[in-house]
Nucleic acid binder design. Structure first.
Lengths: 122, 122
DNA sequence: CTCAATGGTCTAATGAAAAGACCAAGGCAA
DNA sequence: TTGCCTTGGTCTTTTCATTAGACCATTGAG
């Protein structure tokens, strides 16, 4: 198993850095976790997420589709209907993410306190 | 335990979103994982990471210090010596990250293949 | 006396992201 | 028949973050 640090030994495109580059942006995680609860149309996703722009949702979905996390299905209707849903890969990715979520829950207070303490000591 | 999605129920600052906002940027993870292997001075970190700018390293370290992931120690020498090291919190954070790293290793090929397939089907 | 090294900060140029106008196609109402 | 509505995007403009690189104070070495 490689470590995060190996990201700089560019023998090949490094797995972690490659994955984090895609997933570690502003929106991917939020889109993936929204899709966790089912299939969504474009505009529904937009409303669900709330503070993402059309452009970024479009771009993020395109990347996620490209990397095999999400499938895009177009129905030949008017007005058009396009549905997005998680692939098995996408679902499996959310599993390690849960560890991170759990950690965040456990340690959030500590972090908030650290910030308060930092500000107090300026 | 809250889910990633709860990020939008702004009762309080949501743990996950709060943590991801800080940690999910371009550099924090890379800095943290570099510090995993010990204590570093500013310029050494700069060289270790390689493609980060002074400004961003400075800013990233300041945030990590603020959130309690990293300690900053200044020695009254000339030229100045400033050392950065992980706190217990910082080290504990890298634990759930390992799950993500492992996932990336396991699934990287699948992702690369998905990309190739996507490109092929344009 | 000058030069190098450290840990930064400041400024100017570049790149990415957000906001919102715009588009095509057909259904529906008047 | 003339609008107007809806969807899923894209294009353009403005704003914001990031980068590259100059600059700074200090002092020990040559």
């Amino acid at each position: 198993m490689s470590s995060l640090r190996d990201a700089h030994d560019f023998e090949q495109p490094c797995p972690i850095r490659d994955v984090l580059d895609r997933i570690g942006d502003q929106w991917s995680l939020l889109v993936l976790s929204t899709l966790e609860s089912g299939t969504f149309r474009f505009n529904t996703l937009l409303r669900e997420i709330g503070d993402i722009s059309k452009q970024m949702l479009s771009r993020t979905l395109k990347q996620l589709e490209q990397d095999g996390f999400v499938t895009r299905t177009v129905y030949a209707e008017v007005p058009p209907r396009v549905e997005y849903t998680l692939t098995d890969l996408g679902r499996s990715f959310l599993q390690p993410m849960q560890h991170l979520v759990a950690w965040a829950d456990e340690n959030h207070r500590t972090i908030v306190d650290a910030r308060a303490h930092y500000r107090a000591s300026r």
